[in-house]
Amino acid sequence: MVNKRGLLTFASNPVIASTGVTVGPLETKKSPFSKYADKNYDDERCGLKTNEQGHAKMMEDACMIALSKLDKTPTDAEFVLMGDLVNEMTPSNFAASTIGVPYLGMFSACATSVSSLLMAALLTESGMAELVVAGSSSQHNAIERQFRYPLQYGSQKGATAQWTVSAAGVATIIPHIEGAPIITCGTIGIVTDLGLTDPLNMGAAMAPAAADTFKRHLEGHGSTVEDYDLIMTGDLGKIGFELFKTLLDRWEYDVSSTFRDAGAEYYGKHPEFLAGASGSGCSASAYFSEVYDKLLSGTYKRVLLIATGSLMSPLSYQQGDTIPCIAHAVEIQMK
């Protein structure tokens, strides 16, 4: 008997009708994903006064771009589901206030890209929505000062440290139409905590969560690794991704080819980014740019996206708590 807990199947085949991706100046220069982005900024604060305002602006622009590709305005959208990592998600709140669409804040840390996508698909599936906007974002400066140190503080980062991206990724979800990537099913993650405590090694903390969700998704939905053209995790980074593959290897999955990690690839081969990228904009901007484009062009027929998030705060790790982690999976098909 297969355990069906946390599994979602969307029989009505809701589709991702468009996406909007905005990236910051550093990503524009260094990231291979930036060439798929819709908009980039010269200024890390998008010309505004504070990092958080720039953060909100990136999110807002991404929403507007995704809607404009459908020739829609915010008044046509019924729901917007989004989130970020800043305290109380103020950037998303401000972005939602500007676009004025009924709003639900989503928080699954860096897995928010997929959790909001799944909830959007669910709203569409239930027949209560014709157009839902879903996405997530992060901004390096705002996240760094909240979770770590002031930007100019000199502390040596080890090989496990990841760089929070400045990017936003948004998708619009509508009921089934031909010629768009279909959200077929998904799996909601179980919070996994294997007792790791190092906030500068989040990839290692998140890898078991990703592996667990992966296994539950394949077993629950009865698929195999060979069914997919791409299995992409969110922001495990180089070390977390190694651990993830090692775990799957032990469970006798073939990890040789179809696997990728957005965080590990986000900054290409630049060594100064150490283990790679992280942040809720990382998976969102990678999934809704390159992966979406390649689904549309038919390069990928069926992909499994597993976004990972570490659900800690500066308070929790300073109090000596471990890092609880989550991973949500969504399966997207192009027919």
Binding site: L26, E144, W163, E272
Partner: peptide, 8 residues
């Protein structure tokens, strides 16, 4: 005088 920057 200075403004914080997120450059690497």
């Amino acid at each position: 005088v200075f403004k914080s920057k997120g450059t690497i």
